[in-house]
Amino acid sequence: MHPITTAHYLALSLALLLIGTVGVLTRRNVVIILMSIELILNAVNINLIAFSHMWQHATGQVFAIFVITDAVAEAAVGLGILIALFRNKETVQADEIDLLKW
């Protein structure tokens, strides 16, 4: 069995990025789209931690903390907007949000 290298982590994160992308592009439910974006950000973090380990310093981990911070902020605002929209329109389906052309 090969030892696990940084490249393995990279391949894994690429796969996760792909899954997240597919989720954003195909799902109708806005909540699930937001979750897919979380998947993408986690793919980023896998990369960062792997590289951080490889270079033997903490920079990547610090970067990952910022990515998580941003994920929190985006999720909070995104869900807030979703609630405002739901109050006006009673739907969370992305393609029913159609006053503006999608």
Partner: peptide
């Protein structure tokens, strides 16, 4: 406005 914000955010 709600919709625009949500689309822009996503």
């Amino acid at each position: 406005s709600n919709e625009a914000a949500l689309k822009y955010l996503i």
